[in-house]
Nucleic acid binder design. Structure first.
Lengths: 141, 141
DNA sequence: CGAGATTGCTTGATCGACTCAAGTAACCGT
DNA sequence: ACGGTTACTTGAGTCGATCAAGCAATCTCG
């Protein structure tokens, strides 16, 4: 599915453009993940643990239940893409880190997720600045 | 989860802004759906059938298996949000239509999905035009 | 016309993602 | 040191998604 969607009849022109952009982004993101044998959930987690993080922090950042994270991390661990290390300062907690092969895989994934890069490349320097400013302003502010 | 994500370390400024925008959009969309007791999949389908569509067309538009659509439409039908009508021109095919209460619910959902509207409202008319143009250009040409 | 392929959808099996409730171990406060 | 809280795990259950099979309607072409 992976389609935020809004029927073809989407309101104004900007709104339509926003929808199309978001949809294209989402699609490209999912496709890139799949290319590397990652589900979107796995890619999310793998992305976050570029720097060491606890399970709880991951759950919070990804806005889901801790038990969901457990499950995903376990699968990533059996694929040896991440490791769960004990936290010497709090033995309840576990620190998740990418393994070197996790780094490689995620690197390859990012590489093939060229949508944002190529979107940026379609714009001049000035336009990029403008777009950044407009997006930020649109998002409330 | 619902986080396309890219680690905090996301490349350039525009790319970061794009990510944040997409993420905010996705989140708002999902939240609006949930507010009305809709999963994202249900909201997708319900949105599409504003105008009559066959199962196959839905599957194609939403890029998923036909059996997935069957399942979702069945659930929507038991909630009386859509109806499956026979297609007199091809008795294998079924036309999906929203019921009046489906219309109401989807209307309420769209109403509460104010992200794109308010994003647009944060911009001047000229800025909206600019943003539309930039997004389209970024998306390839 | 009619047998064989194709199309449109449904069913059933299976898996992953997600949530919730319950459990366990470690920590913290008094 | 006991009670409550925190960090995570486990188990049950649901939904979303895909695949393989099946069935009926339609199409095709000899």
């Amino acid at each position: 599915m992976a389609v935020p969607s809004v029927p073809a009849s989407a309101a104004t022109d900007v709104e339509q453009a926003m929808f199309e952009f978001v949809d294209a982004y989402n699609q490209a993101w999912e496709a890139a993940a799949n290319e590397h044998g990652l589900s979107t959930a796995h890619a999310c987690v793998l992305g976050r643990v570029e720097t060491r993080r606890s399970m709880g922090k991951l759950a919070e950042e990804l806005r889901c239940d801790a038990s969901n994270i457990t499950q995903i991390v376990v699968r990533l661990e059996t694929r040896e893409l991440v490791r769960r290390e004990p936290n010497p300062e709090d033995r309840r907690s576990r620190q998740i880190v990418r393994t070197p092969s996790g780094d490689d895989l995620y690197g390859a994934f990012e590489e093939s997720f060229e949508f944002p890069r190529s979107a940026a490349a379609n714009l001049t320097v000035a336009e990029r600045k403008q777009l950044t400013a407009l997006l930020r302003k649109a998002m409330r502010g």
